[in-house]
Design a protein around this nucleic acid. Structure first.
Length: 153
DNA sequence: GCCAACGTTGGC
DNA sequence: GCCAACGTTGGC
């Protein structure tokens, strides 16, 4: 059982969109960074819990919790020339990028980036590291427990 | 729109 | 394999 944080632009896919999807489940597609991909490919398992983070928006922060409900499979958008995420170097025989399906567990209050930065207990969070741009990253169990407490309070 | 930080590309 | 140029991310 591992904990993760994944970033999504709410204009593309928000926590409300996940809640509104059939079976509250959506494919997580569009990851185009090798480090993020490797976390998904090598580290994620069905049942892992994920902080759903809204990025590139007015109030960036944690907006919900989702759960990994599939093993990794090829991201379909890499094969689609019409897609923003098309990758001409990927082929069906040699896919380069993967997706996992995630299901909404719950929407939370918005725990903003600003608030996250105020807690010394979270100083070491990868998300808060200078220059951190990963869209998929692990969360330490102690960090998860602390954040879970903040979200329940 | 700015810009810091980081990743990728491609010539050599 | 180096590294300059370029592209992207993402907060502000």
């Amino acid at each position: 059982m591992h904990y993760w944080l994944m970033k999504s632009e709410p204009d593309e896919v928000s926590i409300d969109d996940v809640l509104a999807a059939p079976a509250r489940t959506v494919p997580w597609f569009g990851v185009r960074n090798y480090q993020a991909r490797n976390f998904m490919r090598d580290g994620m398992a069905v049942g892992d819990l994920v902080l759903f983070y809204h990025s590139s928006c007015a109030e960036p922060g944690i907006a919900g919790i989702v759960e990994v409900v599939s093993t990794p499979y090829p991201d379909a958008t890499q094969f689609d020339p019409a897609s923003h995420y098309y990758d001409p170097k990927a082929s069906a025989e040699q896919p380069r990028w993967i997706s996992v399906d995630v299901r909404a567990v719950r929407k939370t209050r918005l725990l903003s980036l600003k608030e996250l930065r105020t807690h010394p207990q979270l100083e070491q969070m990868r998300l808060l590291a200078k220059g951190s741009r990963l869209s998929v990253m692990p969360v330490e169990p102690a960090e998860w427990r602390f954040i879970d407490k903040l979200l329940s309070a």
